[in-house]
Structures are given as structure tokens and as C-alpha cells.
Design a protein around this nucleic acid. Sequence first.
DNA 1: CAGTCAAATGGGGTGGTCCTCCGGATAGCG
DNA 2: CGCTATCCGGAGGACCACCCCATTTGACTG
Lengths: 191, 191
Amino acid sequence: MTRTTPGRPLRADARRNYERILAAAGTVFAEQGADGSLEEIARRADVGSATLHRHFPSRRALLLAVFEDGIAGLCEQARSLARDAAPGPALTTWLRALATYTVTHRGLSLSLLPPGPGAAVGDDPCHVMLHDAGAPLLHSAQRAGAVRSDVVFADLLTLVTAISLAIEATGDPAEAERLLTLALNGIHVTA
Amino acid sequence: MTRTTPGRPLRADARRNYERILAAAGTVFAEQGADGSLEEIARRADVGSATLHRHFPSRRALLLAVFEDGIAGLCEQARSLARDAAPGPALTTWLRALATYTVTHRGLSLSLLPPGPGAAVGDDPCHVMLHDAGAPLLHSAQRAGAVRSDVVFADLLTLVTAISLAIEATGDPAEAERLLTLALNGIHVTA
DNA sequence: CAGTCAAATGGGGTGGTCCTCCGGATAGCG
DNA sequence: CGCTATCCGGAGGACCACCCCATTTGACTG
């Protein structure tokens, strides 16, 4: 794990700093949320702020790099659920896992939201990964008749993210469970 | 309308500045979202930044003041729906109106979220107003058997707010409609 | 083992933010 | 008209994101 990949061929010291920054960012984001101070991150990583900005041109880039491993794990879980579980439960189990992860990792929900107004769906790798892993779960649940056919994967991602975002602001994880249950209830076929 | 009420007895110049700030804040928040620059607001209101901070001790206070009128309107609408419409539709109609309003008023959704981790439910007047107006709609829908009995008003508020928050980030209002439909679908009795 | 050079660094500067202090202006009263 | 509590806003402190560029350093070559 933690095989976080920089852009490409990096000098040894550069790679060392890259990973220091990543580690520091992890703790700072956990402590202060997604808008923690970048300067503070650089300070804790014992690195000049210019170095941080060179490695991660935007706050978003840093956030994505920090959570890359976790996302990959969720994708793996999605694939194993697709193999081993019944279509309906597989989807809801995974969405719950996704929600749990985002709720317990401050700052992640913000970075899971689409980048900006004009951005296309597949713009950032993080979305693509989640989509590729999660969409099959949705589709087989729909084929099995467990989920409304007008639901799109992006809906689910945004819904889970939205709830996490709200919970992150209120600070009450128990509430996340209630809301997710309601929301998931809504995607099912009501026939 | 726009009878936005300051704390209480204010000197004429103070009231003038108060309203200038409110107006400027309205446009800046609309343009830049809830984290628009307070300094910029003061600048546009042609007022020293100290004056802004004296009238509105926190960003949140300013946001609430800006949207106070709109909230009041929504509350009024809730009461009239409670009188004139059938229990089930009254609730969903109102929630849709609430969503529409929050989605079209950047910055509002953030201020509708509970203030912080430790804050009690009735901490700020804005929540109290919405609760008092909206909760009756929920309760009669539940009494009529249209909505699950384990749903609480705070759930609905957070759900709508969460969706608006996410939409605000993505910038795609059409998506709000989809998500709200799913979420509202989830609150109904499926028995 | 040196010598070379592109790659990488980080101190310091710029321009922005939020927020507070306090000397000065003024509205509204008698 | 003059007095005073109220209100104002410039200046300044603490912080931040982001960039420039002189300096250092890793890695490759002879």
C-alpha cells in the first residue's frame, strides 16, 4: 500500500519530499479538514512552501493524492463485491462503505465532487476509478430489477458525497447513517 | 420586503451602513459563493472593514442576515401549503421549493447547515424558523401515512441542504432535480 | 573518483485575507 | 447651539497562497 505515484521519473530527494508532503498533508487534513493550511503542511513536512506547490499545483491535486490509496481500496472492494455478492446487496453494501470512508476521512468529500462548473465527467482520474469500479454494481442491480432504471452512477456518487459533505460540517457521524438509509431507500424500485 | 432587521435601536448612519453592507453582501455572495471576500463586501458597500465586522461579528451572521427574507418567504409558503394542500404533496412541494431556493442562492446552503459540531439544534433563529414552519408539514404527511414515521425534520433539512451544497460545487442545477427526486422517493412509505 | 549540469530546493517577496484597536467624526438630544 | 454616547474607518498585526530566482544537490560521464 501507500504506493502513491508521482508524475513520473523523479530524483531521489524529490521523491522523498513528495512523500513527506503527502504524509504531512494526511495528518493536517485529518485535523483541520480540507481547507487546512498548505503552509502548515509544508512546515510539518520540513519543506519549503515552493516545493509543496511544485509537486501539487493545486489544493485539489494534493487532496486527491492523499486519498488515492483509500479510493483504490474502495474500488478493489467494489470488484470483489461484484464477484461474490448478489446484485442488490452488493451495491448498497458498497455505497455504505463508500459513505463510511468519506465520512471518516475529512476533506475527501470535497475532492470527490466534480471539479467545477464546466468540467466533463471523466476529467479527473479519481472519478474515473470510482466510476469504473462502481458502475458495474449499479448496472447489475438494475438488471436484477432492484434499482430504478433512471438512476445514473453519477447520481449515487453525488448523493453519497453530498451527505458526507453535510455530515462533515455538522460533525455528527450518526446522522450520516440515517440520511444514507433514506437516500438508498429512494433508489429502489417501488413498483 | 427587505425589511431586514438589525439588532435594535440604531443611529441613522449605522442603519444606512447596515443595509448597504447587506446589499453588497448579497451580490458578492451571489457572485463568489459563501466564501466570498468580506473585505470586498466592505469595499463595495463603501464602508470600512471594521464597520462590517461590528455589524456582523461572523461570516455566518452576515450570511443569515442576507438570506433572512428568503427564509421568511419559504416559511410563509409552508404555512399556506399546510392550509391549502393535501398532506403528502404539501411536504414534497415545499421541499422542492426549499431546494430550488437554496440552489439558486449561492452560499445559503452552507449557512443552513447546523453551525458546528457541538451546537444544539435550536441554536440559530434561522433553523428555528424553518423548523417551526416545516415540521408541521412533515408531521401531517406522516399522520396521513405518506411518509415513513422514522423520518425527522432535521433529516429533511440536512438532505436538501446536502444536495444543494453538492450542486453548488458542481454548478449543474439540473442535477439537483434528479437527486431530490431520488431522496424524496426514499422518505415515502414503501410498505 | 572527479566534473558537469539539469533537476530540485527554499528563503523571501507580493498581494491578498480576516480581524482589532483607537483617535476622530457625528447624529440626535436637551 | 453645544454635549455626549454612538459610530466610523484607516492603520496595523497575523496569517495565507503563490511565485521568483540564486543556490544546492543528485546522478550521470569520462
